[in-house]
């Protein structure tokens, strides 16, 4: 894999800086409990999107490994999973800070919070599995199988159960439908900002994944 071009990195840098500046400066509707913290929607939500995006890349590379038995796909899957864990971690941290302001404490055992943590545990287990196998090809095929298996169960963790069990996140059944409070009413500006932030964070995660992959390739060449 080639390093990303300098134009790509420049674009991501400027794009995300603009997201930060406009996210802080543009007016935001005054919602009772959220108040000014509603701006966190530009950072917390896109990071979780970026995590799903990069884990999908990891899934795809594990799939390719099982088809073609080429170790470079295994390294790609591993790098993408590690970047995914990083974004999962930042999502939890930004979410916890937000939860402290709106719900009172950092951790509320809301289903979505808990299941998101479970998703991080799954990818933690993926790395534990990689550590406990010595043979390279065996490690690659076992961890690819585990990655595929856990990815097909991910929708239950991220999409199905949070909409079924009562909780505090928007979209939980007891909050009167799946409406996001920041989205109430037609607010085009918030939508545009949110989706551009999603694009920015996905591009950032791809860049990190690219760096991570090149490091692991160099390491495996040195061994």
């Amino acid at each position: 894999m080639k390093p990303v071009s300098s134009r790509y990195t420049l674009f991501v840098g400027i794009w995300l800086s603009m997201i930060v500046v406009f996210g802080m400066l543009l007016p935001i509707p005054n919602i009772p409990i959220l108040k000014e913290t509603a701006r966190n929607i530009y950072f917390h939500v896109p990071q979780s999107f970026a995590m799903i995006f990069i884990l999908t890349i990891s899934f795809w590379n594990s799939f390719q490994y099982l088809r073609k038995k080429d170790l470079s796909y295994d390294r790609k899957a591993e790098s993408a999973a590690s970047v995914g864990m990083l974004f999962g971690f930042t999502t939890i941290v930004t979410g916890a800070v937000w939860a402290d302001f709106t719900w009172g404490v950092f951790w509320n055992w809301d289903p979505k919070q808990t299941l998101f943590l479970g998703l991080l545990f799954i990818y933690g287990a993926y790395f534990i599995l990689r550590m406990s196998v010595d043979d390279e090809t065996k490690k690659a095929s076992l961890s690819a199988a585990y990655n595929l298996f856990s990815f097909v169960l991910m929708p239950f963790l991220v999409f199905v159960l949070p909409r079924m069990l009562p909780g505090l996140h928007p979209g939980s059944p007891e909050e009167g439908g799946a409406n996001n409070p920041v989205f109430t009413g037609i607010n085009l500006m918030i939508r545009i900002m949110l989706y551009s932030s999603v694009i920015g964070f996905c591009m950032l995660s791809y860049w990190l994944y690219n760096i991570r992959y090149r490091i692991t390739t160099l390491k495996s060449k040195m061994d």
Partner: peptide, 9 residues
Amino acid sequence: VLSFPLMIP
């Protein structure tokens, strides 16, 4: 370690 996270849901 491998099973429990998948059994959370």
